[in-house]
Design a binder for these strands. Structure first.
Length: 289
RNA sequence: GGCCCGAUAGCUCAGCAGGUAGAGCAAAGGACUGAAAAUCCUUGUGUCCCCAGUUCGACCCUGGGUUGGGCCA
């Protein structure tokens, strides 16, 4: 069985993954977009160093923030790794729904050169929108005029592949490639989740998050994509006091948790949402028994 | 004790010749194929402090209270 553990940030996914790993003897594979970076540590709530060094944990802390990792690379890395385990008997954990979808479903990423950062940067949103309307009106309407990043991406796809996004994507997102997957969702009360988030941010500060971030800024500058991570980007604002930064991180984390829930609920159909360990154990016994 | 100012959404506040209200933030819901901890869309929550009075009608005017702040004793 492939167990995919999903849920919002701070809901206890990592602990559950470790519990299952112990119980079943399966390795743990990460699908979190920021825990892959070795330099990001105190702000990303990774499992402990001991666990990461234990030979049972994969795709954590193995990339540098200077490398600009992305979904397509993750898909390759994760599928290669899965095949090393014969595509069976692993635990997937993480918070990046898109990475999990791209891994397990038939998302196709054709070879392409990385998009230059200044691609179409001189166009206004309206110009980008009008241009996409000519190529793929459905997609343009879905994206909307204000979603500049996606408009540019859609136009880039057309410029290098000669096809629009809809043509390239043809329904792969609903086609599950691995048939032995069990999705376990952590169903946690919203108020309790928010309390846990607030508390975890306090602890991150006590553990020296500020120093870690400032040192990284000194080494690498502030403009790396990885510094868009919550817990890092908020420090890139000289007008805020430490307390204000802390509160902002809490708020951004709460908003993020909300977005994760939306994605998991709507993008994954057969999730067993569990409220406690008994329910989870029951799901596993049904599958393995 | 006297005088002045305030009390309206979870928070900070705006409002109106008297016709039961609206901004920002927080929040909620949603989208999602190469930056996804990213990016974007939608939504307004109310004993307008309480009790009387005036009025067809009061968040608004009058009187009395409650409560917070300031000034003077």
């Amino acid at each position: 069985m492939i167990y995919a553990v999903l849920g919002p940030t701070c809901s206890g996914k990592s602990d559950l993954a470790e519990f299952l790993s112990q119980k079943l003897g399966y390795p743990v594979i990460n699908f979190d977009a920021f825990q892959v970076y070795k330099e990001l540590d105190k702000g990303t709530a990774k499992p402990s160093k001991e666990l990461l060094d234990s030979n049972r944990y994969f795709l954590y802390s193995f990339k540098s923030i200077t490398e600009n990792y992305d979904v397509s690379q993750y898909q390759t890395d994760a599928r290669n790794l899965l095949s090393r385990f014969n595509n069976d008997n692993v635990i997937l954990v993480g918070g990046t729904g898109l990475y999990l979808k791209a891994l397990l479903f038939d998302y196709k990423f054709e070879d392409e050169k990385r998009m230059p950062d200044d691609f179409l940067s001189n166009k206004t949103n309206e110009e980008l929108f009008d241009e996409l309307m000519k190529i793929d009106p459905d997609d343009a309407k879905k994206i909307g005029v204000n979603n500049r990043k996606r408009l540019i991406r859609a136009l880039y796809i057309y410029s290098i592949h000669g096809k629009n996004k809809s043509e390239l994507n043809d329904n792969g997102k609903d086609n599950l490639l691995y048939k032995n997957v069990v999705f376990i969702g952590i169903d946690i009360n919203r108020d309790i989740l928010y309390e846990r988030i607030n508390k975890r941010v306090d602890i991150m500060f006590e553990n020296g998050l500020k120093d870690e971030v400032n040192n990284l800024f000194i080494y690498y500058g502030k403009s790396l994509r990885a510094f868009q991570a919550i817990g890092y980007k908020e420090f890139n604002n000289s007008l805020l006091s430490d307390d204000e930064i802390k509160e902002l991180i809490k708020k951004n984390t709460r908003n993020y948790a909300k977005r994760q829930l939306t994605f998991f609920k709507h993008q994954f159909k057969d999730v067993k949402w569990c409220k406690n360990l008994e329910e989870i154990t029951q799901v596993i016994e049904n599958k393995n028994g």
